[in-house]
Design a protein around this nucleic acid. Structure first.
Length: 587
RNA sequence: GCCGAGAUAGCUCAUUUGGCAGAGCGGCGCACUCGUAAUGCGCAGGUACCGGGUUCGAUUCCCGGUCUCGGCUCCA
């Protein structure tokens, strides 16, 4: 039953890929009609549609897209058939003699027959499969999106082609649903909400990719970090603080100056020594490890730090809080014996999942990355590490995918991707083995048999970075965070200035209990204040007038719009405190 | 970094063959004393991203730079 469902889904996904890929060919044909002399790159189906890469005789702009879209619809209406042919390599070279990119692709293919597809006057080198005829393509279920530059074969030393992206689905309804999701994503965009809710900013005059946390963003961060520290102590971690810069010796020893230099900032000279600002925290933690000798009895060590690192990112990749040049990792290093590693991995995974649960994320998928072509460390250790990673994932019952060859050169890893409220996946947690640094820094412990041995080391970040986490968090909740993380938890609104005194009293009462309450005492109308509080996503609004003053109650409006009258002040306070303490997701 | 688009008041945006810079929101002031999403009136607010060029005259056209956005590549 389940297997059947799976099969059907796979089959449907193959169908949609066929539609998307066929539309890519139709787009190529349309482009050929409108821009003769164009050269073709590749045109695959992708997650939400398709793209095709072209080298145009003269550059085109977004304004050219409607004409291409129109031509595509004309082609579809002609009911053109897709015809597969098999040709020899030599024949293929002849067919594509004016298409250098295709010729390069042909050169890369194995000897034997090569399949090509024809429709209308367009022919493409293609494995297929395609739909039978353009009849199967819905003219209203695709939409050209944007043009963008893309290097030929993703290689920045190769020519840059013009890529046209399109959304495409099996039906118009699916396309429309997807476009609505995109609108929703735009509405939730953390850069927009960050401004509207006064959470953070960046400043071009002061440097791109560097985040300024405003009081309200700062409040969220402080609450989050407070909780993070408590959880780490509860889970057997110790918390470290380490410097922001270190002498070149440190980075030479760690190897960062060899393999990570492109992401590090130029050194500063202090007393004739070069110091680098840190792109990672690990070497500092190792320095602490090496201050004493360690017995196997001391292990495992779980050392965490909210460590702020700086990494050079190319200007074109910066993106709000998601991709920045300075960020704080919720980093930790676990140093343990080989015997302990399996339990330690499982613990980290459990810990991570429990954190995500508290934060209101429950759809989580693991990606297990294996040994890449270039790697350091004993293959046997890689295998053992991989087994313990896999066991941990399976024990937790997490869905997972293999990412073959996707590990770092120094060890395999588990990445967790969390799904947000509108179905997007974000890579956050990372758990990485490191066979490199213990070796380079000559880390040791004394084992039961009295011998010096090298410990295992695992790097892990649960939230990833505080900045990126906050970006995802803002978008997941669209700014309406759980109460415990809300900068303002209660808005106190008198119906008229006559009741300002009672509003102050209520506010002071709540603040005295540790609730972040804010009295809204301006000359504005009550309705304007409610609107303002609502826009600020303040979870609780208490409305105060004569009745409430007489009875020492509050009239409560939630940000969801619901309303409850005549709640005794104490009752309300304990309700809010209860939600805060429980880190409840509801109000 | 590369390809493409953009930058006008604190915010969101108008401003067409190149001729004195505009609105709404927000801010401030005054009036109104109000019961669950915007009370009314008034005032202030600008080196049109920065630098150069063309022109009698540039927010507008050209060149260079910065930053932002969509991608490529990379990644927490």
């Amino acid at each position: 039953m389940q297997a059947e469902g799976m099969k059907r889904r796979r089959c449907m996904s193959a169908d949609i890929d066929r539609i998307r890929h066929s539309l890519a060919h139709v787009m190529a044909e349309a482009v050929l009609h409108l821009h003769p002399g164009v050269q073709f790159g590749i045109g695959p189906a992708i997650q939400d549609g398709f793209y095709y890469d072209f080298l145009f005789p003269q550059s085109i702009a977004n304004e050219d897209l409607p004409a291409i879209e129109k031509e595509m619809r004309r082609i579809i209406a002609q009911n053109q058939t897709f015809v597969r042919e098999e040709v020899s390599k030599a024949q293929a070279r002849e067919i594509f003699r004016d298409q250098p990119f295709k010729l390069e692709l042909i050169d890369g293919l194995e000897e034997g027959t090569i399949s090509i597809y024809r429709q209308g006057d367009f022919v493409d080198l293609c494995r297929g499969p395609h739909v039978e005829s353009t009849k199967e393509l819905r003219p209203d279920a695709f939409k050209l999106k944007t043009i963008a530059g893309a290097y030929w074969r993703g290689d920045e030393t190769r020519p840059m082609l013009t890529r046209i992206y399109a959304y495409a689905f099996a039906t118009k309804a699916e396309l429309e649903a997807y476009l609505r999701m995109l609108e929703e994503a735009e509405r939730r965009d953390h850069r927009k909400l960050g401004k509207e809710l006064d959470l953070f900013s960046t400043h071009e005059e002061a440097g791109p990719g560097l985040i300024y946390w405003h009081p309200k963003g700062g409040r969220v961060r402080v609450e989050l970090e407070k909780w993070w520290r408590e959880e780490h102590y509860k889970n057997g971690y110790e918390i470290l603080f380490t410097p922001h810069i270190g002498k070149s010796w440190l980075w030479e020893t760690s190897g960062h100056l060899g393999f990570y230099k492109a992401n590090m900032y130029a050194p500063m000279t202090i007393d004739e020594d070069d110091y680098y600002i840190k792109p990672m925290n690990c070497p500092f933690h190792i320095m602490i490890y090496k201050t004493t000798s360690h017995s196997y009895r001391d292990l495992p060590l779980r050392w965490a730090e909210l460590g702020t690192v700086y990494r050079y990112e190319r200007s074109g990749v910066l993106h709000g809080l998601m991709r920045v040049r300075g960020f704080t990792q919720d980093d930790a290093h676990i140093i343990c014996t080989p015997e302990q590693i399996e339990d330690e991995i499982l613990e980290v995974l459990r810990f991570s999942l429990s954190m995500w649960k508290t934060l209101g994320f429950s759809k989580i998928k693991a990606y297990l990355a294996t040994r890449p072509a270039d790697s350091v460390g004993d293959p046997e250790r890689w295998d053992q590490a991989l087994v313990s990673l896999k066991k941990a994932i399976e024990k937790e019952g997490l869905p997972y995918e293999m990412d073959e060859g996707g590990g770092a050169f120094y060890g395999p890893k588990i990445d967790l991707k969390i799904q947000d409220a509108i179905g997007r996946e974000w890579q956050m947690t990372t758990i990485q083995f490191d066979f490199n640094l213990p070796e380079r820094f000559d880390m040791t412990y004394v084992d039961k048999d009295g011998r010096q041995k090298q410990p295992y080391m695992v790097h892990r970040a649960l939230l990833g970075s505080i900045e990126r986490f906050f970006g995802v968090f803002v978008e997941h909740y669209a700014g309406a965070f759980p109460v415990w993380l809300m900068p303002d938890q209660v808005a106190v609104i008198p119906v008229a200035p006559t009741f300002d005194e009672y509003a102050k009293e209520v506010t002071a009462f709540l603040r005295g209990k540790g609730v972040r309450a804010k009295a809204m005492l301006s000359e504005e109308r009550m309705n304007a204040k409610i609107r303002d509080a609502q826009n600020q996503k303040i979870p609780y609004m208490v409305i105060l007038g004569q009745r409430e003053k007489d009875e020492r109650t509050v009239s409560l409006r939630l940000r969801t719009g619901s309303q409850e009258n005549g709640i005794p002040l104490e009752t309300f306070a304990s309700r809010v405190l209860g939600k805060i303490e429980a880190k409840a997701l509801d109000l």
